[in-house]
Design a protein around this nucleic acid. Structure first.
Lengths: 338, 338
DNA sequence: ATGAAAGCGCTAACAG
DNA sequence: CTGTTAGCGCTTTCAT
């Protein structure tokens, strides 16, 4: 119950030098005698000295904590992004602390309000669907805490952003459907107002236009990201007079929902209606038939976001960068017509 | 870039009282005048005062940080546990920081060594498969930092533990197979040496014994937790002379791997070989046929673990508790014989 | 190259 | 009920 850790004071006392020298030695500043430095470092190792982050943080005005704010962690994409972040954070000596918004902007706001910025060196953020926290983000940044956005970025804020190539991914997805001979392509989209939803929608539209296919507004459905939404959307589409022969879903979960609907209605996936998703969730290789999809580089997005954030923290003049990582078409059975 | 936050000093100066009074007012200790308290609290709100955790931590020798150490976060079970933890941590004013071991005991050790305990009020741990960090865990606890284990617990350590009911879940799973008329039941188990693997194995064996079925040692296969392992194990079983007619897999991922193998070999799941998993990963409802499984209360395990940990932190004398949460049989098509 | 001393923001005796 | 003071462990002038 003592919880008494070794401090630089202890080291100083034992070596008969001052704490400031110990401090300098440990941080390897320019003005320490290499000999004393060695002695200090050796003793520190021997005694298993660990710096107290609270003290360092208090003195230097910086912790070694990065915050992550995101809607969920219980899905393939987000948990993989976090793993990527964790990897580089860990290797650079940063801790990460997690804030889950449940995709609610109220919760997001609350978290941001409660956020004791004095605890954080920087923030990685994937905004909630209906985020209206721009002002907070701005404040945080102007308070000197850098933010890097990933996936669901806020356009109006000038800071680094990392995303998959939503536009081209969508474009490629739809062109794949067209190549396979589908011509009546619907889009089960995400909620309105989200940048990446828009980008995927634009990619979809442009691919149609480029291939001289009409854009049919009833075939563009906006709803939540869940599997249930995908299922409902498909149910609805199947009741229309003018039925599509293929679906481009904004993500795999919705594509899978749509597939469930199709199965329920005994419609043969691929042959009757082709379907393509976005993410490459492991589920897409497990469902039958396999779901063709655009693979997102989730792990790399996590790593890159964190690398950028650390640069923002450590370099005084590091300019905001926007990184767009390419996706990759993964062809499975859901887009086979025959 | 200033990053100058309001401090209690500011509040004190403005209100013309001492910092200690402000401090007391903010913490609502017993001996403050309600009137002054109100004034302080009002001003604090107005000025959007946020306490500096580093300072509090330094002064009190406690942070508001909980560490989570676990093998992975990229699967349903773990990400759901974390969500549960996050929920109660957030509501109790604790932050969580994440350490991912990749299920490697080296990494686990390294994390534990690097862990600046001065940063953490407590630790939630799910040990790596081949963990040999007992000594470290003991040290951490005797340094005054409480640990709660979940899922993969270390038996020899005396502290609170939270797990699903592995034994009874396995027992129920196997009895379900027997009820459905399967008699030659194999067990695709997890790695040896893990408590919960043993418990599920025991549940399996006892169910066989209770139903007067022989225990066939070749039908008990130990391997990693991955889908690939499940597939390989099934491949192997299918080559034996003495083939089982049902499989109890230690988790859904392995069950799904086994199903892939079965499909590859054109064996009809349910009819030819029944299969049951453990977890209730959403994948099990998406794969065809649906996978019968034992649902684990992952979210509750997360919540409960965190609640216990907070009790250990806040109550001086809180005795270690072991909680076992029941699972639930979810019947799908993979155990339908006809 | 090293030491003394002040201070980061907060808490906790101790006096009154 | 409130103020004074010392101190948590570390960094950082400023001297020497």
């Amino acid at each position: 119950m003592k919880r008494r850790n070794i401090t630089i004071k202890d080291l100083a006392r034992i070596l008969n030098i001052s704490v400031s020298t110990v401090s300098r030695a440990l941080r390897d500043t320019y003005d320490v005698n290499q000999e004393t430095r060695q002695k200090v470092v050796n003793l520190a190792n021997e005694l298993n000295y660990k710096p107290n982050f609270n003290a360092t943080g208090l003195a230097k005005g910086s912790t070694h904590n990065l915050g992550i704010v995101l809607p969920f962690i219980t899905n393939y994409y987000f948990s993989t992004v976090i793993t990527g972040i964790q990897e580089v954070a860990y290797n650079s000596g940063y801790n990460i602390t997690l804030y889950v918004t449940n995709d609610s902007h109220q919760r997001e706001l609350q978290i941001l309000e409660d956020l004791t910025i004095s605890n954080l060196d920087g923030l990685l953020i994937c905004a909630s669907s209906d985020s209206n926290s721009s002002e907070y983000f701005e404040n945080i940044i102007s308070d000197g805490v850098p933010i890097v956005f990933f996936d669901r970025v806020i356009d109006t804020i000038d800071t680094s952003k990392v995303m998959q190539d939503d536009y081209n991914g969508a474009f490629e997805a739809v062109e794949h459907l067209i190549e396979r001979g589908y011509t009546k392509i619907a889009h089960i989209a995400g909620p309105k107002g989200l940048t990446f939803t828009e980008k995927r929608l634009n990619g979809y539209k442009e691919a149609l236009i480029k291939n001289n296919l009409p854009i049919t507004e009833e075939w563009i459905i906006h709803s939540e990201f869940s599997q249930e939404s995908g299922e409902k959307d498909m149910d609805w589409l199947l009741q229309q007079n003018n039925m599509p022969d293929a679906i481009f879903a904004v993500n795999d979960r919705k594509a899978i929902g749509a597939m469930q609907s199709l199965k329920k209605h005994k419609i043969i996936i691929g042959k009757d209606i082709g379907i393509i998703g976005f993410t490459n969730d492991p589920m897409s290789s497990i469902i039958t038939p396999g779901l063709t999809t655009i693979a997102e580089p989730a792990y790399e997005i996590g790593k890159l976001s964190c690398e950028l954030l650390i640069k923002h923290i450590t370099k005084t003049y590091f300019h905001a960068e926007e990184k767009i990582l390419p996706g990759k078409l993964i062809i499975r059975e859901s887009t086979i017509r025959s």
